[in-house]
Every structure is written in structure tokens, then in C-alpha cells.
């Protein structure tokens, strides 16, 4: 598992160094709510609550969550 984590971070860091920089005037699409992580916060919260209750995994895109008995 460690190699997977290392590879992903190295790949991303490598990507940061070689990818062309996106200039502020090129960020029109990136600024859209649909292009932000968390732009669907209302829906994500519902999903996280359901999947936390019905599966043994949680978290990933945010902190682990929980805060319920979820029988």
C-alpha cells in the first residue's frame, strides 16, 4: 500500500512541476461551482451519511465523519 501512496504523491508533485501554470484569466471554467471539490456539499453530506450507515468505510474526500449510531 505504501508504494501506492508514494507513487500518487510523487506523480502529483511531478505534475505540479511540469504542468503549464494556469493563468488567472484562464480560470473561468475552474471558477464554476461545478468544477470545485465540495461544490455539491449538500448532496455529498447526504451520501456520506447513508454510506457511513450502510458500509464499513467512511471518509476520503473529507474527514471520517460519523456522529451517529446508525443502526
Amino acid at each position: 500500500m505504501k508504494w501506492m501512496i508514494s507513487c500518487c504523491f510523487l506523480l502529483l508533485l511531478y505534475g505540479c512541476s511540469v504542468l503549464p501554470e494556469v493563468k488567472p484569466w484562464q480560470k473561468g471554467n475552474l471558477a464554476k461551482e461545478e468544477m470545485t471539490f465540495g461544490g455539491d456539499g449538500f448532496d455529498d453530506a447526504f451520501d456520506d451519511h447513508i454510506y457511513f450507515s450502510k458500509e464499513a468505510s467512511s471518509g476520503g474526500r473529507g474527514l471520517g465523519g460519523g456522529g451517529c449510531g446508525c443502526n
Binding site: 480560470k27 464554476k32 461551482e33 470545485t36 471539490f37 465540495g38 456539499g41 453530506a45 473529507g62 465523519g65
Partner: peptide, 21 residues
């Protein structure tokens, strides 16, 4: 202005990477 990253919280304790313009 639109591109600023705002560390908005999420429901419950699900705070994390939720960024919102």
C-alpha cells in the same frame, strides 16, 4: 474573487477538502 478557495465546512464532522467558490 470567484477563484478564492474558501474552507467551508460540511455537515456534521465531514469537514475537509470542501472548497467552494
Amino acid at each position: 474573487k470567484n477563484c478564492r478557495w474558501v474552507l467551508a465546512g460540511a455537515v456534521g464532522t465531514l469537514m475537509g477538502t470542501q472548497s467552494q467558490a
